[in-house]
Nucleic acid binder design. Structure first.
Length: 772
DNA sequence: GCCTGAATAGTACCA
DNA sequence: ACTGGTACTATTCAGGCG
């Protein structure tokens, strides 16, 4: 019996059911039941571009012959598609077997009258999302008939789909079950090694509360078994960890293999398996690694769970209990240590749970917007998010999706950065363009297919970019501008809605939706200059920045023409001398003459510039100090130097004069020399960007990392290395030492005074006149 | 071999 | 692993000097 149901799509994959290839859609029904919907009728397809229409019949026959030869079940049909805006005939090939389809394409492209294959580089489950009105983390309506039994899957119903599900315009989501987990491993010699070091504890947090499984002695097989059954019992929709993709899942799998156990925790009773974007897939559930979230939040300085939790206000009231795996090893038999460690792990599982519930709206909205499944969307880099979003738009418009191509790097000019006027300035307005690059792309219709190659077009029909002289047709609206317009229009609408709605979950969801829209529209310009982009176009990227440079230059000229002082400018912002009346006039003139939206982003009652670009500090009228680019906000400077510079800036910006600042500096220096500073404040943190063996110079942080490696620590690209400069006199080599093996007595304080504190502070003090 | 200034490597910032 | 523009430190290297 066929009936209509509503469901929310959690995850999807393609696999086999009853010996038949099917798309598996894992969802939550309106009644809260966890369900599996099977689409047995979906066949992915790719396209072959037809260059010679007269040969169609012949080509179709040849294609059929090849398929028979390679034993591929395929259907062919002639369709009219668009390629970069131009209509063109294409042969659609519906196929059942991906690798055979690739073989068919390889041979087909040798035939006369065919040119390039499209959409063969996209996975079937992704094609399913793109080609239909189906989106992850969204509500759908579908016609289904119920299958008997649950076939061993962890769902309460299985349905066969009749036709495709249809996405509904509803941004809410059902009550989802979340399970957060945190792993503590023994670390007998540096970084825990799954071959050697057992898992000492796993803490999990669900709606019901916190629970821990701890190893008896060195045997963690019970821990693994308890964790497995806990997941099956709790049946979460979302499994949340921290570094679970880069560490926990493979650690768990390795330990399980060692004990001959199986971590069959997915809804298909399979084990977590590595998938695309360096991600682990737990079929039917969303595996969310919250460490990925930090790439989206630059405000979080250190890349730790504790910093993430603090940012989201999810830390325990009295702070986290310390958890140093290195020191636990060997003392696990001690009941008190064991208890403390377990408590610390529980705090972290709890914090992850809370962070997840606060970040969930954004993750789900981003997934639903881009159509990247909820567990991929955080792991996928910004470029892939834009890529997927554009792919779904292309599909809906009958546009062929361009393949990802190998390209060589070509540089182009970016934003304009002006030389600042050094010194202290009072009453300064920062005027900036709102969403400059997206608006430029819309205004000049900049897109790969609106670009005119060759010079035949009439000058009235095109916009010509400054400097590069690239031409873009004014009509019809381009692919990227139309995407940006939609994104910005929806953003405005969502903003408006958020202002009208007052109930708590709805407001949060709307704000998250807005953030997702913003992320995609802001990244689109950069995306066009990215070699990996399907819609890569250097001309598009460089024209966008060229118009940007021209705009900011004109703003600067207008300001100067009005007798305002232009103190600094970078890309889309301009610092000008401020008084109420003339700033207002400036804005009006810009709007009138340039037809772009500008606003006063900030008014500083005082701002300090050195001679350097991209580095300044200001104080607002409310007394908030903001620092950009200077040492005080650089994570690779020591805390002593950063704090010192911050303090000096504080004195100067509260108008206490240079002498007072100098006095404050003297005190800081003597305090450091007299030795009342903790070790942590001297640590220098730097990130390694590649394997240690690839470094060509003996950089300090690399030397420190090598010392760590000697002691059993594994330093991977992207890891932060903390080190100190010590007094050790060595004839050659460096004077650095990894922080966990250094005592404060070894620290070379003179280095920190002369090479850290004084340069950072003097840079600022030097630009201040003696009388200030 | 030692000193010095220029070139290069490396990182993290701003927009 | 979205872009280019930028500052800054430490290391490395080339060249002058004795």
């Amino acid at each position: 019996m066929v009936k209509s149901i509503r469901f929310w799509l959690i995850d999807l994959n393609d696999g086999e059911f009853d010996g038949q290839r099917s798309i598996f859609l894992w969802g939550v029904g309106e009644d809260g039941r966890r369900i599996l919907l099977l689409d047995k009728d979906f066949r992915p397809s790719f396209y072959l571009l037809l260059t010679d229409r007269a040969k169609t019949e012949l080509i179709l026959k040849q294609l059929a012959d090849i398929s028979t030869e390679i034993d591929l079940i395929a259907e062919f049909s002639l369709e009219t598609k668009k390629l970069l805006g131009r209509e063109c005939p294409a042969i659609r090939v519906r196929y059942s077997d991906t690798s055979k389809a690739q073989r068919l394409a390889a041979r087909a492209l040798r035939l006369k009258g065919l040119d390039s294959a499209y959409e063969l580089d996209i996975r079937p489950s992704q094609l399913y999302l793109l080609g239909n009105e189906v989106a992850p983390c969204s509500w759908h309506e579908a016609e289904v008939s119920e299958a008997a039994g649950s076939h061993g899957y962890a769902v309460s119903r299985i349905y066969y789909l009749h036709g495709r599900p249809r996405r509904q315009n509803d941004i809410t989501y059902p009550q989802l079950r979340v399970l957060a987990f945190y792993l503590v491993c023994a670390a007998s010699k540096g970084t825990p090694d799954p071959k050697r070091d057992p898992i000492l504890a796993i803490s999990i947090k669900t709606e019901k509360g916190v629970q821990s499984f701890t190893a008896e002695g060195e045997n963690d097989s019970d821990v693994l078994a308890a964790f497995t059954s806990a997941i099956r019992r709790e049946d979460p929709d979302i499994v949340v960890g921290f570094r679970c993709n880069s560490r926990d899942w493979s650690y768990l799998t390795s330990r399980a293999t060692l004990h001959g156990l199986t971590l069959n925790i997915s809804r298909a009773m399979t084990t977590p398996h590595p998938s695309i974007f360096g991600h682990f897939s737990v079929t039917g559930r969303l595996d969310v690694d919250l460490s990925d979230l930090m790439h989206d939040i630059p405000e979080i300085e250190s890349d730790t769970l504790e910093a993430l939790a603090t940012y989201f206000g999810a830390s325990p009231e009295k702070g986290f209990l310390s958890l140093d795996e290195f020191s636990i090893s060997g003392s696990w038999a001690d009941a008190q240590r064991k208890g403390e460690t377990t408590k610390a792990a529980e705090q972290r599982a709890h914090a992850l749970y809370d962070v997840c519930s606060k970040a969930m709206d954004f993750i789900l909205q981003l997934s639903s917007l881009t159509r990247l499944p909820g567990d991929h969307v955080l792991t996928a880099a910004v470029g892939f998010r834009v890529d997927t979003y554009l792919m779904s738009r292309a599909k809906m418009r009958g546009e062929l999706i361009p393949p990802r191509e190998e390209r060589s790097y070509l540089s182009y000019a970016g934003g304009l950065v002006m030389n600042p006027t050094p010194g202290i300035h009072r009453q300064v307005a920062v005027v900036d363009f709102r969403s400059m690059y997206p608006n430029i792309m819309i205004a000049y219709n900049i897109s790969p297919e609106t670009l005119v190659r060759g010079g035949s077009s009439s000058i009235d029909d095109v916009s010509v970019s400054p400097e590069g002289g690239h031409k873009f047709v004014k009509k019809p609206r381009g692919f990227l501008p139309s995407a940006l317009l939609d994104l910005m229009a929806e953003r405005k609408e969502v903003e408006k809605l958020a202002g009208q709605v007052h109930s708590e979950p709805e407001i949060r969801i709307l704000q998250a939706r807005e953030k997702a829209l913003k992320v995609i529209s802001n990244a689109t310009y950069g995306y066009t200059g990215w070699l990996g982009a399907r819609w890569y176009s250097k001309e598009v990227a460089e024209s966008t920045t060229a118009w940007g440079r021209s705009l900011i230059t004109r703003v600067s000229e207008i300001a100067k023409g009005m007798g305002l002082l232009v103190i600094y400018g970078d890309t889309d912002s301009l610092f000008v001398s401020h008084d109420e009346k003339r700033t207002k006039e400036l804005l009006q003139r810009i709007k009138r003459e340039l037809a772009f939206d500008v606003r006063v982003e900030r008014i500083y009652s005082m701002v300090i510039f050195t001679e350097a670009k991209k580095r300044y500090a200001g104080i607002t009228e409310e007394g908030t100090i903001e620092i950009f680019g200077l040492e005080a906000v650089r994570s690779d400077w020591s805390a002593v130097a950063r704090q010192a510079q911050r303090e000096i800036l504080g004195v100067l910006l509260s108008d206490k004069g240079k002498k007072a600042a100098q006095a404050a500096l003297d005190e800081i220096v003597s305090n450091v020399r007299s030795g009342r500073v903790p070790l942590e404040d001297f640590i220098l943190w730097k990130t390694t960007t590649k394997p240690l063996s690839e470094y060509t110079v003996r950089a300090p942080h690399v030397e420190a990392a090598r010392m760590l490696e000697e002691r059993g620590w594994i330093v991977k690209p992207g890891d932060r290395v903390g080190y100190l400069v010590t007094k050790t006199v060595k004839t050659t080599g460096s004077r650095v030492s990894p922080y966990r093996f250094t005592s404060v007595e070894q620290v070379d304080k003179e280095y920190y005074v002369k090479e850290q504190i004084l340069p950072a502070c003097n840079r600022v003090l030097e630009v201040i006149g003696p009388e200030s």
